[in-house]
Structures are given as structure tokens and as C-alpha cells.
Design a binder for these strands. Structure first.
Lengths: 115, 115
DNA sequence: GTGGCTATATCAAAGTCTGATATAGTCTAT
DNA sequence: ATAGACTATATCAGACTTTGATATAGCCAC
């Protein structure tokens, strides 16, 4: 597991990025982020839903219910145009911070995918 | 200014990195991080000192007073061997998170220094 | 009809953060 | 001599944020 502060900092960037790929429902998001991070990040429901509701209140995502073939109904979230803008802003903030860390750690900390 | 969550996440990594370069006193650290980040990060005294004291309590830094030629005495902080270990751990956490973001954003977000 | 999984949601208690404030030494200008 | 600006460390109460526990409920297998 990553430290709390890193998980908090990456919450919105990752959530917006996942929704940029496709519409997803809450529970699906928690599973996906766990797989994607190889268990390094886990989002409990009590962390996820307040953020989703906040994003919705701010117009960055829209939601709609959809029945499931196997289980309770699902509430899907879709990134709005405004949300796409917020994602770009978020990416830029992350790059700004990485530039600061590069000054301290050098460029060896490549963001290129590992082999 | 970077968002609060990113500033919080980078606080300890940056602080340990600065102290790895050389011994510094609190006020100097606040000035240095502001310059280094081109104003994107500002640490108020009320943010800085609780963290420094916590790092000291956990044995990651040691402190000693030194008179100043021009002003009040300064309390210098020095990274301990244990603190160097913590810095390495912190760097690795950051890289782990960057790897996750690379999966979402692609490798174009190079960490190489800008021209 | 119990247990496990899926699925959304809330809340109170715990934990964290930070603007305001206190203290104090040096320097410059008046 | 003293007011204002800057340097320097430090604390704290009130504000803010986080999260484990809990509630509700549908589906499936035994």
C-alpha cells in the first residue's frame, strides 16, 4: 500500500482518468484501481462515494442508473466536457510537481514504462 | 500554487531531499522550496515545524542550534542514516505511483527536464 | 435461510491542517 | 530611541477532512 498522502493526492487524477476511458460504476472503479495499481491503492466505499458526489455537484461527472443482469442496479458515472478540462488541469499539476522532483532527484526517475 | 493534496503528498519527500543535500534551518527551507518550485509550493511555518519535529521524534533528522551573524539563532536539521533510508523508501513510493499514472496517461509525460 | 458477493450510501468520532498569534534578535532610517 | 521590515522558531484553537462501522438491498449457491 502507498502512503496515505500519495493515495489522497492521486485520488482525483486517477478517478478522472478512469472515467475518461469509459463510463464506470462505483464498485467497478474500486476493483479497477486495485488491479491497475497491483494492490498498492485501495479505495473503500466511504472514500469513493463522497468524491464522486462532489465531482457530480461540481459538474465534472454526470450519473445515470442502469440495471445489472446479476445483482443490484448500478449507478454509472460519465466524464463531462468540464470534467475533461479538469483532468487536463490535474495532469498539468502533476507534471509541474514532477519537474520539481526532477530537480532534486535527477532525470533518472524516468516515467517511461518499466520492462 | 499546486493543489493542497499534491503539496501534502510532496511535503516529506521534498523535505528529506533538501536535507539530503545539506543541513538547513527551518526558515531557510521555506525560502528554498519556494524558489525551487518557482512559487508553486509555499510552506508556512505552521506547516513546516510540526513536520520537522515529527521527523526528529522518529529519528529521521537530528537538530542543533547555531548562532547567526545577522539575526536570531538558527536551528539546523541534519538527515540521519535512518532518514536516508526513509528518503529512499519515499522515492520508491513516488515511482510506484508514477508507474500507475503512466498506465493511464502513457509515457509521453516524460520526467526528463524541460528545455 | 445463511453466507458470500455485489452495490450504493451515510455518519460520528478521530485525525489533520493552518491562520493567527507570541516571542525575540538585527538592521535601517528618522 | 523607536518604528517598521525582516529573520527565526514555535504553539494552538477552531476549521476542516477522513474513514471504520453500519445500513440497506438484490442475487446466487448450498
Amino acid at each position: 500500500m502507498l502512503p496515505k498522502a500519495l493515495i489522497a493526492a492521486s485520488l482525483k487524477p486517477i478517478m478522472l482518468s478512469l472515467l475518461a476511458e469509459r463510463d464506470m460504476y462505483g464498485y467497478e472503479i474500486t476493483q479497477r484501481v486495485q488491479t491497475l495499481s497491483e494492490g498498492k491503492i485501495r479505495w473503500a466505499a466511504s472514500k469513493l462515494y463522497p468524491v464522486l458526489h462532489d465531482l457530480e455537484n461540481r459538474g465534472l461527472v454526470a450519473s445515470f442508473w442502469q440495471p445489472s443482469e446479476s445483482g443490484p442496479a448500478r449507478k454509472y458515472y460519465r466524464l463531462t466536457v468540464k470534467g475533461q478540462g479538469a483532468l487536463e488541469k490535474t495532469k498539468q499539476d502533476w507534471l509541474d510537481l514532477n519537474q520539481i522532483l526532477v530537480k532534486l532527484w535527477g532525470p533518472d526517475l524516468s516515467l517511461a514504462p518499466s520492462m
